[in-house]
Amino acid sequence: MSANQSPPTTTADDDTETDHDHRDDAAPSTDAVVELTDVDFGYTSTPVVEDISLRIDAGEYVAVVGPNGSGKSTLMKLMLGLLRPDAGSASIFGEPSHRFDDGSRIGYVAQHASASKEMPITVREVVKMGRFPHVGFGRLGNEDWAIVHDALETVGMSAFADRRVTQLSGGQRQRAFIARALASEADLLVLDEPTVGVDVESVEAFYDLLDSLNGAGITVLLIEHDLGAVTEHADRVVCLNREIYFDGPTDEFVESDALARAFGTAANFLGGDA
């Protein structure tokens, strides 16, 4: 992969989503945000995910659930193009995932453990990173800073803008990362177990935030371990354990036995398993 960076756009803010001139051999329909077709993948000869076909449309709120080691994170990496499928195809916004380079359209929030913990960096500087795909090698203009400001406002973290990220609680930190995704003006928000290590009250507020963002038109893809939160908030559930056990509306998922089959035990919806 040679493309390392989306071209620096001097006009900082975009007006409409410009279409890319990549010629796709198999162009999926325009509404699919993420589309996986017959995807197999394994780090070694043992497959981690197998025969996955999945399509996520714009504006959906999808949760991917499954036991530990079920391939949830791998599936996410395949969707985002961080891994390439051994067989089948993965596309995002109608482009093959591994070739997709308009990073500003995707907001990514990981378990906070993944980011450097000791680094001196303020909340504002973290949110600022959301503008990097837009400015490239250049500097942030007034407009970029205004967007950073709005993003902080939206998640209610303005008062913390100049705090060191290391001094924040888990919930506050995750809000900062959401703000970064907002600052990049992403239309797809991908969250990988975002509430690990976050206190209970903050978890509620966090999911409320996701709900309202989804309400504002952002597609939300949630990789989650906490089944309680998933059934309460997501519209659609994908239950995974190497292959897809269930894919459909949340209500049907709750009534089905997919969970028990996927987890192989009598799991319940209160979360707290593992």
Binding site: A3, N4, Q5, S6, L80, L82, F100, D101, D102, G103, S104, I106, Y108, A110, S114, A115, S116, M119, I121, V126, M129, F132, P133, R180, S184, V190
Partner: peptide, 11 residues
């Protein structure tokens, strides 16, 4: 700061 997020953002 965040290698995975950087990769997702197209770097």
């Amino acid at each position: 700061f965040d290698e995975t997020a950087a990769a997702v953002s197209g770097l």
